[in-house]
Design a protein around this nucleic acid. Sequence first.
DNA 1: TGTATCCTTTTGTTGAACAATTCTCCAAGA
DNA 2: TCTTGGAGAATTGTTCAACAAAAGGATACA
Lengths: 239, 239
Amino acid sequence: MTSMRAVTTVLANERPRLARLGTAERVTEILREQIAAGLFPPGTRLSEESIGEALGVSRNTLRESFRLLGHENLVAHELNRGVFVRVLTAEDVVDLYQLRQIIESSALEIAGRAGPLELGPVIAAVEQAEAAGADGRWDEVATLDLQFHQEIVALAQSPRLDELMRRLLAELRLAFHVMHGSQEFHEPYLVRNRKMVTLLRRKKLDQAVQELRAYLEDAQRELLSAFRAEQAAPPSQGT
Amino acid sequence: MTSMRAVTTVLANERPRLARLGTAERVTEILREQIAAGLFPPGTRLSEESIGEALGVSRNTLRESFRLLGHENLVAHELNRGVFVRVLTAEDVVDLYQLRQIIESSALEIAGRAGPLELGPVIAAVEQAEAAGADGRWDEVATLDLQFHQEIVALAQSPRLDELMRRLLAELRLAFHVMHGSQEFHEPYLVRNRKMVTLLRRKKLDQAVQELRAYLEDAQRELLSAFRAEQAAPPSQGT
DNA sequence: TGTATCCTTTTGTTGAACAATTCTCCAAGA
DNA sequence: TCTTGGAGAATTGTTCAACAAAAGGATACA
């Protein structure tokens, strides 16, 4: 028999799904997606007038959205000049990976201490990524790889860690553009993700953390070198 | 002789100090401070009309501020009902301390790996806190204690870690209201902070991390019990 | 007691207006 | 040629007024 207390607790956990979204939030989601997808490359200025007209929302509503994106570090707001899609520096990439290292390994440790791992979503992400890889859809692989890591963090069951990881990955995506969907970059990580799942299944937590650490170091190195090559070549980014 | 490149690099590092603030940002700062100071206790609804009139800003500008505060988890935005100063649950406190644990200990480890510690600001915070304690200004002690921990994180020299800690502490302050400036709560931590500084000075990093961990566990326990006592008594906070 | 219906209040969103700032371009001067 | 100045255009910053939409509260009725 279920107590009233139990019922209300279950329902309380469903509350987030109930929350409707205002126009500003929906606009934010659209812009976040489009920035991730590369419609607005780093450095682009987001014009209030043109975007507002395109989406059919007023400038005021759009400005609320811009504030939110600014708080997520996806755009930089310069007074009287507007908002610009963030251009990450090499230092940013290093800082982001350092934080990623902290978050992901901490999440695994917390999850390990807490009890049996609920690996369903983690495995699903890996399998979807493998399927996408088999079909040659490498930019989807990129997205699913990030989702895999998001699910890793979700194992810790910490709302703030989840949110933090979400924002971090959104920001990191800005740097991934230089790799846009190249097979050579993504393919090895498919194998490594699979390996990590195996380790987690066998409860080899320490090894999984170690593998994760190596994974992130390699990814950072590769990304940085591609990044610096990109930055040296095309636009001479003002001094 | 200094090259032009060197000059511009130096100046570029000064850029943040140049950034002026818009009205919305300044309003956000004011509200953040006042929420921390307790002018708006948790659960309070922030009325657009009355606050806008009090500060002499328009509703639109104020709404931009509210969005920012919402993103910092200081207020919760409910569609068509307005923004309310966040009411933390016991689970929130646990989640916050878990994250604090991660951030602060990681910061110490990073700082230790990086090289010699620049303890100036850390020591300054402790000494100011001790001075405030000697004068019986216990709510200032509370603020300076938080600043001490902010400076601990600053040792890692990571912009994102800094920002993360800043937001985390702002949120945690919501819970601290139940302790409002009580000497019994704060006094022991003065001693412990001093002890931690000593350990850091002697480069006993491992011991410092251990002390930090114990510190946070104790603080969480005390805060939680005061918190639950508070919550049980006065307002019957929804089912 | 419960519930259906009004009225009031507050937020959600828009559009227009004007001030303040930045950008662009061109001409004058060294 | 390069720098400096400045006029005008374009864009953002902020306010205001208006109305739609939703939530909250009160009243009348079964």
